[in-house]
């Protein structure tokens, strides 16, 4: 049962991911991204990471995406989707993409076929992804990544301000 849900959620994620990059209307892309995040949330849930699943849905699918939608809607108001953005493909783009996808797909199939893939024991306790454990990990073992994330966001904000100002 759990496996079935996992496969369904995975397929949803993949499909929506493809829609995100292939949709001509930015609005559709953003909505597809929301669906993608929901699928991810389901996957987190299956891994006993309830907190992450909730965060994924509330913060990303909820808040961030709504913000995205607003921005897109405001910026796009009165303008039509740019036509020339559907430019020509790079030489060999499609075969290359198919080849890379094929390799990874084969890898996934192989991983599923061989049952001994997972060496690491699955989390034994159901509170593996609880807020307590998550918070503990975040502020002890992974304190540095936590701080670094702040720096990434800071750089992104400054960068966006710069790029927007100069135009």
């Amino acid at each position: 049962m759990a496996n079935l849900i996992a496969i369904l959620a995975g397929v949803l994620c993949l499909f929506m991911g493809v829609v995100v990059i292939s949709a001509k209307n930015p609005m559709h892309a953003v909505i597809a991204l929301v669906a993608n995040f929901v699928g991810l949330g389901v996957l987190f849930l299956l891994l006993h990471a309830e907190f992450l699943a909730v965060i994924e849905v509330i913060v990303y699918a909820g808040a961030v995406m709504v913000l995205f939608l607003f921005v897109v809607a405001l910026l796009m108001a009165g303008t039509r989707a740019p036509q020339e953005s559907r430019g020509k493909n790079l030489p060999g783009q499609v075969p290359l993409a198919l080849a890379v996808t094929g390799v990874f797909a084969a890898l996934v199939v192989f991983a599923l076929a061989v049952r001994t893939v997972l060496v690491a024991p699955p989390p034994s306790t159901t509170d593996f992804g609880s807020i307590t454990n998550f918070g503990r990990a975040l502020f002890t073992t992974y304190l540095l990544p936590f701080e670094l994330t702040a720096l990434v966001l800071l750089a992104a904000v400054i960068g966006v301000v710069f790029l927007a100002r100069e135009r």
């Binding site: 670094l148 720096l151 990434v152 750089a155 992104a156 400054i158 960068g159 710069f162 790029l163």
Partner: peptide, 10 residues
């Protein structure tokens, strides 16, 4: 890697 790359992109 991200901290070093993101500022460089900009």
């Amino acid at each position: 890697v991200e901290v070093l790359s993101l500022p460089l992109y900009i």
